[in-house]
Design a protein around this nucleic acid. Structure first.
Lengths: 354, 354
DNA sequence: ATGAAAGCGCTAACAG
DNA sequence: CTGTTAGCGCTTTCAT
């Protein structure tokens, strides 16, 4: 059933039906009522494709995330979708799984579907792909990593703030051997977190030399702790580049019978919902998924609706901050008094084979 | 840049450009090459909306899930998307958050965008909404809950198999007081799991009377364990309607200093990736997210591509089965020897205030 | 206030 | 093998 069918049945022109459906106020209430009646009776839904074709706007936003299975993203997706629904937008979601091919096909699909804007939450992406989008003047919003050019909105995350708080919290707990489990180094966000860690350590006269690279997944966290414990003088605290890594650390600590937080303090990053439910509940740096999604969506909306009016601030900032739970404690005392190897000998067993 | 622009530059007709782009083999290779050259130079991407308009097929599948923030779903979404990309489909994702209004708007959006099919993975949905889709002859695939009518594919999940295994595993471990933490009772899937539990218990002469209702989220799991422990004779094992509930149970047990699995055995349902990383690793009933997504996608694809050819089997089945990890153990012996209250007095403390 | 008609970008007869 | 052309369903001038 199309607009013509409605027009015929309501004995009006298609133009009138269009006006009614789009709530143009200049139409006679009588007519409008008649049209609505037919619309309801026949269960007419306007064809968005046709509409998009003539309007030149699809009311679709693309959302590119790096890994939907990382719990960090679903919360973003949910908020993004909430906002989309409220504003009559649709969202085209793609999860790149860090695969360059997938990124490319994502971008292609976005362009083909003529999205009105794209939020790129992959924390890193090839310049060449971005060019494709830019060439078409598709409004873009990046987090962390966008080129600093007009027409591209950027959400800068203040990693330092939260990470500094975490480091100082640990230092206040008398930890001096604080390790950092970094994320994949090709991700700008992971690099930024690592740099924030290094800066925060130096700031208080500690040397940030205990750094091992993970993958932002639980598996990486497990391996990282394994590696860390092979050291002569293992850390008494570990700061993780994201919460999934921290969950892996918790898990590996359990395996090795290391008590958290008594033997080892661990701090995560992201504050995903799950962080409240780990064992023990995870102290972590909060980076609000809700705010991030909101900023991203509104940046896009602003760009689209207000057009290219003001070439004002296209930079947004998101702050981070520590949230305390129960995965950190005073550094083990014995460590201060005797060589660290004592503690290792005492509380760490060989990994139990699975 | 549109098809006409390309045609002009390549000095051919739009029809030829269309043929080339769609890889119709009857085009002169010479011409084709010329066209491709222009296409690449100008970075031409066909407008999918226009194409959809004339073809009457959008190459978009709708995917309705109940809660994207439940880790069960992202894995489905990922697989679904993988398949979509492979088959040149787009996916329109909506998360209903169990909100009837959202379900309605989801359905409306799907219809407006003229999706070619919808997979409904909400484990429960209002009949009236389904009607809207059916009226438009949109291919549908449901899990668990679809009406048994032609043109609607159904994925029936064999809950009994896995749940029976879980119950018998627990019984073999000498548990007799086995509790079940159910999901929201309006969800068919939750009801089915509960029934499978009841049947499995009766089957081996145990009475399934320890049932408390949760919400399929971690919070619900925590509350449920709290409630269970207020009983005179609390369970020694608890089977959960999903893994998130089990994670909540683990968390609450930690709070109350109940040791898992020594004091209490817990079994989850779903086998989400996270289940391997809980503390302790969770024994759970597997219901493959990957298979589920695959079946759903292929059912839709089949329906669309092969048209209404064969009115054959539109029912698919997904089996479930137990995967053993480390959250179950022999029932505590003291329980067998002395009144249960002993154990309660011994190992369960009042909840620690947060 | 309403209607007629052009056209958004594309595909598919149909003709040549 | 290639081109011409009529729509797909809608919005929007431009008349009336």
């Amino acid at each position: 059933m199309d607009i013509r069918g409605i027009a015929r049945r309501a004995k009006v022109s298609t133009a009138t039906v269009s006006r009614v459906v789009n709530r143009i106020p200049t139409v006679d209430p009588q007519l409008a009522k008649r049209v609505w009646k037919v619309v309801d009776e026949l269960g007419y839904y306007p064809n968005t494709q046709a509409r998009a074709l003539v309007l030149g706007r699809s009311r679709i936003f693309g959302l590119i995330v790096s890994e939907i299975t990382n719990p960090f993203f679903p919360e973003i997706v949910q908020t993004f979708e909430d906002l989309a629904v409220k504003n009559n937008y649709e969202i085209l979601l793609t999860s790149t799984v860090h695969d360059p091919k997938r990124m490319e096909s994502s971008v292609r699909r976005m362009i083909e579907r003529r999205v009105d804007g794209v939020a790129i939450l992959t924390f890193g992406m090839e310049e060449s792909l971005i060019e494709h989008l830019r060439d078409r003047k598709v409004p873009l919003v990046f987090v962390d990593v966008g080129p600093d050019v007009p027409g591209i909105a950027n959400i800068r995350i203040n990693y330092l703030n939260g990470i500094r708080q975490a480091v100082q919290h640990l230092a206040a707990l008398r930890h001096t051997r604080i390790a950092f489990i970094a994320g994949p180094q090709r991700l700008k966000s992971a690099g930024a977190r690592r740099e924030a860690f290094e800066a925060s350590m130096k700031e208080i006269g500690l040397s940030p030399d205990l750094i091992v690279v993970g993958d932002h997944r639980m598996e990486g966290g497990m391996n990282a702790l394994l590696a860390l414990n092979k050291l002569n003088d293992p850390p008494t605290a570990v700061l993780c580049s994201n919460d999934m890594t921290a969950i892996g650390v918790l898990r590996e600590a359990y395996e090795q019978n290391i008590k958290i937080p008594e033997d080892l303090s661990v701090v995560g990053f992201d504050n995903i919902h799950l962080a409240e439910f780990t064992i023990p509940p995870l102290t972590t740096v909060q980076m609000s998924q809700h705010d991030l999604a909101k900023i991203a969506f509104n940046a896009l909306l602003h760009e689209v609706e207000d057009g290219s009016t003001s070439p004002e601030r296209h930079n947004y900032e998101l702050v981070t901050g520590l949230v305390l739970r129960r995965s950190t404690a005073l550094a083990p005392k014995k460590l201060a008094a005797t060589p660290a190897t004592n503690r290792v000998a005492k509380s760490r067993k060989t990994p139990v084979p699975q």
